[in-house]
Amino acid sequence: MRETKYWTWFIIAGFMIFVLGGLHMMTVHLNGVVSLFNPFGSDAVAWKNVAYRSKSLCFTLTYIALLGAVLYHGFYGLRTILMELGLQKTTQRKLTASLWVIGIILFVIGTLAAAAAKIAATTL
């Protein structure tokens, strides 16, 4: 049941990325085709637009959700690929544990950065 649980959340994370990541891609990489969340001109990575998104609590929370989903989905995929290549049982357990640790560290870094960016966008 544990693998079923991991896999089910992997699928749910994948769908979340489809929605949130899709919106992110449209905002930043399809800014000439659809103008989305870029109220200060069509350059999506100009500071004014970036600050506009960083200030908003809604955006900050969705970015944190997207970060979590991508890290979980990506690392589960990486774990699957590495496990399929054939590893010893102890190596498998170490791999799973290290991916959890690295994933959580990166999630914490990303979340703190998002929170700090909210402050920076408001003050700077």
Partner: peptide
């Protein structure tokens, strides 16, 4: 795999917005 590799760098690159305009 390509997206995952890119994403590892993207976390740090996009965090640069913390340091201001």
């Amino acid at each position: 795999l390509g997206i995952l590799l890119f994403f590892m760098l993207h976390i740090f690159e996009s965090s640069l917005r913390v340091f201001g305009p």
